[in-house]
Amino acid sequence: MSSPYVFIKNVSKTQYSFLTNSGVIYRIAFSEIPDLFSEYPLFANNVYEFIIALDKYFKDFQPAFDNNIGITIAEIVNDFMVDRDKVIVYFCDVKDRKHKARNRKFTSWFTRFNDNFVNYTIQIKDFEVELTYYNTLIVKSENPYKVQIFEAFETIVNGFEDKYSLIMPLRKLSLMVDTNLKASFFFYKFIKNSIVSIPSAKSSNLGTCASPNLKLFEKRVFVETVHWIFSAFLANNCSKCASLS
């Protein structure tokens, strides 16, 4: 894949810029954000916030649909992430309430142009202001700390370790079963989404947000059941993972 628009970068590869056919200039920045993972010194200094902004003269401009923008941004991310240890966090801007569209677009770019990356999006529903914050983490598939990074991200965003302790071993299990992290993490997300989408959760006014107010009993029964089935599968079918069961 080659970039349809020529992009220019600074020496430290933290700033990129490109010009579209319609004359709009994009500014892309990768800003260090070590304080986010300050409790995880193993990778805290490799974390960068990914910022997409229009140039100052276009800040109130509504860019027309342009398929080349996505490909160019994907190429910029590829260029920046040459180092396998780098981690990107991306927060969808909610200022103009177009955060859902941004998330959809970003997800579609990731799906179409992803070459060697794994992503993880955590949604936070803010019912007071009727907004959903989309927080996405992107790491390279060969990042040696990817599992720890995903766990740390979830801990930081949701504090799952306090009240969702049953989910943690399930995730570890799913990650260890399959050497293909992408597939196993998809499995984990599928299971987790199933948990928060059970009828009792949907009928609550909290929607599908990961909330402590969901009926923990039902969730735990579900998680334990899945865990039991999965463990049984491992014991019977996967000798190298048998110790897990």
């Binding site: 936070i124 949701n158 504090g159 306090d162 009240k163 909330s211 402590p212 107010n213």
Partner: peptide, 8 residues
């Protein structure tokens, strides 16, 4: 947990 998430 939810309050912490929203604050985040």
């Amino acid at each position: 947990v939810q309050v912490r998430s929203v604050l985040f």
